[in-house]
Design a protein around this nucleic acid. Sequence first.
DNA 1: AACACTTGTTCCGTTCTACTGAACGTATTA
DNA 2: TAATACGTTCAGTAGAACGGAACAAGTGTT
Lengths: 254, 254
Amino acid sequence: MATKHDVTIDATETTFRILEMLKELDGAGVTELATRLDIPKSTAHNHLVTLRENEYVVKHGTTYRVGLQFLEFGEHTRNRMKIYDVARPEVEALAEQTGELANLLVEEHGLGVYLCRARGDQAVRVDTYAGMRVHLHCTGLGKAMLAHMPEERVSEILDRRGLEPRTETTVTDRDTLEEDLAAIRERGYAIDHGERLSGLRCIAAPVTDDDDVAVGAVSVSGPSSRMKGERLETEVPELVMSAANVIELNMSYS
Amino acid sequence: MATKHDVTIDATETTFRILEMLKELDGAGVTELATRLDIPKSTAHNHLVTLRENEYVVKHGTTYRVGLQFLEFGEHTRNRMKIYDVARPEVEALAEQTGELANLLVEEHGLGVYLCRARGDQAVRVDTYAGMRVHLHCTGLGKAMLAHMPEERVSEILDRRGLEPRTETTVTDRDTLEEDLAAIRERGYAIDHGERLSGLRCIAAPVTDDDDVAVGAVSVSGPSSRMKGERLETEVPELVMSAANVIELNMSYS
DNA sequence: AACACTTGTTCCGTTCTACTGAACGTATTA
DNA sequence: TAATACGTTCAGTAGAACGGAACAAGTGTT
């Protein structure tokens, strides 16, 4: 009898499995897709034809690729987010003031999603890009947000996404994380000592709504060699918190 | 017997119809979607549940919205395009040199897709954004590309997409367009006298591959008041063409 | 130049599933 | 409290997605 009442639509799911695989492989042919996903060639083919006719996929010769329509989708939804509109200039200002890399993160489905980033003169080259998803527990940005979420939501997220270690400094223990979050609430900003990428320090402040619930976070990150002493303790934190503050104000009044 | 052999998958198509509608409405409830798309509530609901479980859609209270996963998709595919990598710095340089708005366009499914843009100090505020799709015949960028495409491909595109007028200066006649394209080939760049947006002039140069087929185009656009005389005739065209040239070279060798 | 191999595409029968429309539960408003 | 509007659940059925094999088209090899 399988699973009682599963309202989920299989055809749609295989379509997206195909799209994800196409993205991962950066283009592929029918046969390769079919074998990788363990579906008949004809099924893969039908889905690809459907996607192409609706202009979500392009076909160069014999290989199919993900099309740019998704860029339209993504850009469109991002542009309609108020926090993006408001925060972008502040993130750019942060990058310029510090010379480092500045980021904006929001939460979705229990994961962090980078909305935008700006590079200062000295900014490190790291792997982050707009749209990228990360676990919340292993970034300063994520911890800043977790610190300002209802307790039940936090444990719901941690249950679902776990506390996988990424580097040697990643917090993998629930109690330790809880202490960390308390400290963040106390001092107003979060620090990340290479918890996702070793050697990269990150200072992040939450952006909260009127009920003090996080709707996002902004950060400045740079190499440990530069992020230390007075700069790490007061200078950058103050800039980041003030940026978050400006964003909060502009979110309320407009 | 309906339509002989239609391999297209209906479920997938309704899923995307829902997504498009969600995008258009900037979020909606089950009932609203169902009535707008003329499908049963339960159908809409099932699709939405599927989309949410796969994290393509978010649900705030009673309204569903398009999620940020598509941003990931779009950004990812854009970043993997060589022309984007190569052209972005050149587009930024163009914006700085001219103080105006600079753009990069590619073609997909017979439409132009903006890949990136950069704003100079004086840059006008227009509606273009990355991922946006436009008809090729009514922009300088599009005409620059059409001028360097196989004849059959051009007529295929025009047949499919038509020559809809957007402003009073839009070229709507096939022969006139053909003359226009010949002139573009001759002089090396395209001019757009407010053919998509009145008052906006645009100078665009094609980026071609080794076979002289367009793979994209770059442009500078500004208000007619500033784009005239020497600047319109030689200064900006030279900058744009030289940028296109640099991009072509960097595309071949790397 | 013919062959073997791989690719994408087409075909058709069958099973399973996506759709339907009504009923249910729940929240919001009068 | 009643009534409206909403999202959600339910079960039956028509029909569509799937599966496997056959076909076509191209590629590289012998």
